[in-house]
């Protein structure tokens, strides 16, 4: 009697599961796409312009953020030369740090305006905070080691050695930019702004955000746009062969959303809502890019978008 019962139970579970599983999945999908509080983004044609009254403006009071020294005030000595070299590497890494840079990005593609802009990982706010504990490596890292990680992941290249002139120049530039900034204090504008998640992310909404806000500069295919004359990118690639790899910090949806909220579109910072930033970050996260150098090819194939 017991034996028959278990067989029957097994069959019910097996066939019932097979029948019900697609229904379960469909129900989940329906629930995601047709939430009662969900507002569908309007599928408008390519927009011409936004009316003035509907634009958010990020109000900055004078003196809110640290202002680094002017480029015109770089001294004319050996130290000044090192600062200038560091600045060159920073804004044009593919040319001045050619042996270490691996893709089309420069340092200033993420650290905007030559590492000066608040909310885009400014150097003047970072320099005084190192050495610090990093959760990514579970160790205390120095400023130089942090730069090495930038080259390895975000620039998909080779980590410069600690004694290389490129590394010295970059550290000198960062030190010059943060002259007058306090050491060991979290300055306003440090890193990226905070983004809060209120509902599930949706890459379909993110695609619409990308097409309306990002596509005009970064291109329909997200591969960026090259300079008309000369090498390098006018607008950096967001995915593809010449973009950051899967080990980069920007491959975390949260980090990317934070960067987008605080800096993009250029000139209209903080104009996207938290949800829009997260959605478009997810859309970018799903795209193809170089593999994480610390991950095997097999893992890269089966876990295509794992960050860390």
């Amino acid at each position: 009697m017991m034996k028959i019962n278990t067989i029957y139970l097994k069959r019910v579970l097996l066939y019932g599961g097979c029948l019900l599983f697609p229904v379960f999945v469909m129900a989940q999908e329906l629930g995601q796409s047709l939430g009662s509080l969900d507002v569908r983004p309007s599928l408008v044609n390519p927009r011409l312009s936004l009316p003035t009254q509907l634009t958010q403006v990020h109000v900055v009071s004078p003196g809110e953020y640290f202002s680094p020294p002017l480029v015109a005030d770089i001294p004319d000595d050996k130290y000044g030369d090192m600062v200038r070299m560091g600045r060159n590497i920073f804004v044009n890494s593919a040319k001045y740090a050619k042996r270490y840079a691996g893709n089309g990005l420069n340092c200033s593609s993420c650290h905007l305006q030559e590492g000066r802009k608040p909310h885009s990982g400014p150097l003047w706010a970072a320099f005084g905070m190192y050495p610090m504990y990093r959760h990514k490596t579970r160790t205390v890292v120095t400023f130089e080691e942090r730069i090495q990680d930038c080259f390895l992941y975000s620039m998909d290249g080779i980590a410069p050695t600690l004694d290389s002139p490129e590394m010295k120049a970059l550290v000198t530039y960062a030190q010059w930019l943060s002259k007058g900034a306090p050491v060991g204090i979290k300055l306003p504008g440090r890193g990226f702004p905070i983004v809060n998640r209120s509902q599930d992310l949706d890459s379909k909404r993110g695609k619409i955000v990308y097409e309306t806000r990002c596509e005009i500069c970064h291109g329909e295919d997200g591969k960026g746009k090259k300079h008309l004359q000369g090498d390098g990118y006018m607008f950096p690639p967001l995915w593809g062969r010449n973009s950051y790899n899967k080990g980069a910090g920007m491959q975390r949806i949260k980090t990317l959303a934070q960067f987008i909220k605080g800096n993009m579109p250029l000139g209209a910072s903080f104009s996207l809502s938290d949800q829009e930033s997260l959605d478009v970050a997810m859309y970018i996260w799903l795209q193809d890019r170089p593999k994480n150098p610390k991950m095997s090819w097999v893992m890269d194939f089966f876990l295509p978008n794992m960050a860390h």
Partner: peptide
């Protein structure tokens, strides 16, 4: 030049060159 190449970062004002081309020759 300072405004054209670097903008006013502490006010969130981007540089002219970041969209209008490295020499201000326009882009697209």
């Amino acid at each position: 030049e300072d405004l054209a190449l670097r903008g006013k970062p502490e006010y969130g004002l981007p540089a002219c060159v970041s969209c209008h081309g490295p020499n201000g020759q326009g882009f697209g």
